[in-house]
């Protein structure tokens, strides 16, 4: 099988999940409370699982025999197709929850549509993932409400987190390749319903949707922030230090 456009599309979904999981994993042992360590690990695990299924499928679509690990560990940053939203450092809990709200709401709409789509493999992966990300949305929503409508300090920090993440939301809704029309869901069509959901939570949390300029996209074409290189260096170094080894 060699289906380049669908390969690129699937890789985009896979890399979003993988890079997001990599950032989420950092929180395990660093969350604000032990119960939250457990919750964030669960979310990260769901994302790794999605990434593995999607990468495996991407490898099949490409038809060159690359496995999930070949794709995860042996590509450079210019070959990664994730959006910039998920790759930037995430060491503040407010940022983590703001980003999770945006990302998982997008994923929820996307996977819901994909699960009803014509590609049997993608729809199978999406049907499983939709339940997972529904929980992620729920988790992020509960925290954004509590931080937005908690103390003065948490309100300020949560608003700052929204302000910092909002410029990167737009990229989630970039159009799929024209040749994929009718085959997969077009993220551009998810913009309104997904952002309506996010805005509702932001409003309920007594926060404001920031009026900030949109950051330049490019992640889907392999044009990333400087942060991705470091993230991949850390993630890949051991695997790459032992070419051909089994783990």
């Amino acid at each position: 099988m060699n289906d380049r456009p669908l390969f690129e599309y699937t890789l985009g979904l896979a890399d979003d999940a993988l890079v997001s999981a990599q950032r989420m994993g950092w929180w395990i042992s660093r969350a604000p409370e032990l119960e939250e360590d457990v919750a964030m690990a669960n979310i990260g695990l769901d994302q790794v699982g999605q990434a593995r299924s999607l990468l495996t499928y991407a490898g099949e679509l490409e038809g060159e025999g690359r496995t999930e690990d070949d794709l995860a560990y042996l590509r450079d940053d210019r070959e990664f197709r994730n959006v910039k939203l998920v790759e930037r450092p995430m060491t503040d809990f407010g940022v983590a929850m703001a980003r999770l709200l945006m990302f998982s709401t997008y994923q929820l709409h996307l996977y819901r549509a994909l699960s009803a789509g014509s590609d049997a493999t993608l729809s199978g992966i999406a049907a499983k993932a939709v339940k997972e990300v529904a929980y992620h949305v729920d988790h992020a929503t509960h925290w954004v409400l509590r931080l937005g409508d908690g103390t003065d300090e948490s309100h300020t920090r949560m608003q700052a987190a929204l302000d910092a993440e909002w410029p990167y939301v737009d990229e989630l809704f970039g159009s799929r390749a024209p040749s994929l029309a009718g085959r997969v869901v077009d993220p551009a069509e998810l913009r309104d319903p997904a952002l309506t959901d996010v805005r509702r939570v932001v409003g309920e949390a007594t926060l404001t949707v920031p009026e900030v300029p949109t950051a330049l996209g490019g992640g889907r074409q392999g044009l990333h922030t400087e942060h991705l290189g470091f993230l991949l260096a850390e993630m890949q170094h051991l695997h790459r230090s032992h070419p051909g080894a089994t783990w």
Binding site: E35, H142, R146
Partner: peptide, 20 residues
């Protein structure tokens, strides 16, 4: 048992902790 700020979070924490 577990700690949580309110019932909603307690349910979610319970889900993550006791039914994973």
């Amino acid at each position: 048992s577990l700690h949580a700020p309110d019932a909603e979070m307690a349910l979610r924490n319970a889900r993550d902790l006791y039914t994973r």
